[in-house]
Amino acid sequence: MTSTTQQHPLPLTGRIAVVTGAASGMGAAIAERLAADGASVALLARRTERLDDLALKIKAAGGEAFGVSVDVTDQSSVDRGAEEVRQRLGRVDLVVNAAGVMLGAPVQEARIDDWTKMIDTNLTGALRLAHAFVGDLVKAAAEGRTADLVNISSVGSRGAFPTHGVYSATKAALTQFSEAIRADLSPADVRVSSVEPGMTATELGANLSDEQLELLGSTFAGIPPLAPADIADVVAFVVSRRRELNLSYLVAVPTRQV
């Protein structure tokens, strides 16, 4: 008797994905995981040398990816990037907004420039990307393809974190935006999901002062953080469900974080 092994396609085979914030942290991990699961991935961020390195890593592992220099705070940059993605990959059916910045300070020491940077990146940047690709998602769904928009928010959207009021506000707005536009897009069979990570080991806090890092450290003392790959696992699960199932809101935290 001759045995045969049936080859099963990867769960995201044929999907065309865009990931912002792909130069590091959660964005890079999500992009790598989506490519490993079979998607063709456009890597969007400002740091092109990191994007090139990640694209080479993904290709060496048998995946398909390329970097596109995009600043999500600049509308013309987003428009150019979206057009380049379409020219190289075709119609996008999976968008992950993972670009973000966290800058802390007590409100009485307000730094308006920092507040503006967080709003422009964490919120308005995500709105720009959603606007740039929503037409693709609607058309992909109309063709019978699975179509996803995933926004990476934060548990900071729901709790009180000292010195991080504006950061938390941007994430709360992003979560609410996700819920609101899901009402707009669900009749077109486009899924919208908001993922809220808890404490995760990334570069997000690289711009915090020693005092702010010490405060966060004391707040989360004894709690092993998640890895970016953990959040990538969550996103990969969300977007690989049958198209009739929308996991609209997920919270992913370390077991010891409450």
Rank of each mutant, 00 (worst) to 15 (best):
V96L: 02
V70M: 07
D120F: 01
S154P: 03
L137G: 06
R86I: 11
M102G: 10
A98E: 04
P106S: 08
R91S: 13
T170I: 11
D53C: 04
V107C: 12
D114T: 08
R158D: 15
F133A: 04
F66V: 07
L89V: 11
G159P: 00
Q108E: 15
V70I: 14
S76Q: 12
G125T: 09
R111Q: 15
V150H: 02
R111L: 13
R88T: 14
R88N: 12
E143F: 00
A172T: 08
A82R: 05
S77K: 04
A160W: 03
L123F: 15
V68I: 15
G63I: 08
R86V: 13
L54W: 03
R111H: 09
W115L: 13
N151V: 12
N97D: 14
L137R: 06
S157I: 07
D113E: 14
R91W: 06
G165E: 09
D71N: 14
S157M: 07
M118E: 15
I119K: 01
A169R: 00
R91H: 11
S76W: 00
A142F: 03
T116A: 10
A61T: 07
A99N: 05
H164G: 11
Q75S: 12
L94E: 07
V101I: 15
V96Y: 01
A60H: 03
S157F: 05
V70H: 01
L103A: 11
L123E: 05
R128I: 09
S153T: 15
R111E: 15
Q108P: 00
D93S: 10
G63D: 13
N122C: 08
G90S: 08
R128K: 12
V138S: 10
L123M: 14
V150E: 06
V107Y: 09
V78W: 01
V96T: 12
V72G: 09
R91Q: 15
D71Y: 01
S76L: 11
L129A: 10
R145V: 10
V107P: 00
R80T: 09
E109S: 10
V70N: 03
T124C: 02
D136S: 07
G62F: 05
A110S: 09
V134A: 08
S157G: 07
G165K: 06
L89F: 13
A126T: 12
K171Y: 02
I112Q: 06
W115H: 10
E143R: 13
G159M: 13
P106W: 06
G63F: 04
G159L: 14
L103V: 09
A140C: 11
A169D: 07
G81H: 06
F66C: 02
I58H: 05
E64C: 10
A105C: 05
V166Y: 04
L123H: 01
A130N: 10
D120A: 14
A65C: 09
M118R: 05
I112F: 10
V68H: 02
V107M: 10
D53M: 10
V155C: 02
P106K: 03
